[in-house]
Simulated assay, not measured.
Amino acid sequence: MNCIIIEDEIPAQKILKSFISKTPSILILGIFKAAIEANSFLKNNTVDVVFLDINLPDISGIDFIKTIKNPPAIIITTAYPEYAVNSFELDTIVDYLVKPFSFDRFFKAINKAKDRFETSKNPIEETENILFLNVDKTHHKITLNSILYIESDRNYITVVTKNQKLSYIESLKNWVEKLPKNQFIQVHKSYIINRKFVDKISGNEIYVSANRIPIGRTYKQELLKQLKIIQ
């Protein structure tokens, strides 16, 4: 994996460089003191992981992420743990390292980024409606038609069938783009459902094979249209 470091503190840069040098699976392409300096590099180079401080001199790390189109995996590095909850709302963030962090903690973050990287290269192998999901280095076999719903929780996806619940690092957006539109419908910012298993709709909830799933206000009209429900 290729990475860059966006960090304005020299000691923090040195620690990251030292830890990365001990990790064969990752290569540093560049080190930047400010997000603006890194912006053009990201546009012109393939970067798989960004080590990103939140408090930067020009723009905050969180605000910078929101400006990147198709951002790579982000590992936040900062001295302020109180930012962790809000930052994990961005599904491109795979981990949050609070300074000072150990090599063991760093290596755990790298493994999370590696899982995201491997999943993004080949997240789903499909043959005649059979899917193999790469979860924790194991390929789990399911069929597309067996999926009840897909749930997003921060930077994790859970694929739910009648017999399985498989969770791994992924964004819901990627599933929306890959699933057949005539079968799967996004009903909430955190949920995609299989219309085949819809039992009923009650208020702002949809029942999918007895599972109660919230309906987002901005998704309801399209959902009713897709299901051909006359109001």
Rank of each mutant, 00 (worst) to 15 (best):
I6Y: 04
E7K: 01
E7Y: 03
E9M: 11
I10F: 15
A12E: 12
Q13W: 07
Q13Y: 06
I15Y: 01
I20G: 07
S21T: 03
L27E: 15
I28M: 05
G30C: 03
G30N: 06
I31P: 05
A34I: 02
F41R: 13
L42P: 03
V47K: 03
V50Q: 02
V50G: 01
N55K: 01
S60I: 00
I68R: 00
I76A: 04
T77I: 10
T77E: 07
T78K: 06
Y80L: 12
Y83Q: 04
A84F: 01
D91R: 00
I93V: 12
D95I: 00
V98E: 11
K99C: 05
F103M: 06
D104I: 08
F106D: 11
F107P: 08
K112Y: 10
D115N: 09
R116L: 04
E118N: 15
E118K: 15
T119I: 11
T119D: 10
N122V: 03
N122C: 13
P123Y: 10
N129T: 04
F132K: 07
L133N: 02
D136S: 11
D153L: 07
V159H: 09
N163T: 14
I169G: 05
E170C: 11
P180M: 15
H188A: 12
H188R: 07
R195T: 13
I206Y: 12
Y207E: 14
R212P: 08
I213M: 13
P214Q: 04
L224Y: 15
K228D: 08
I229W: 04
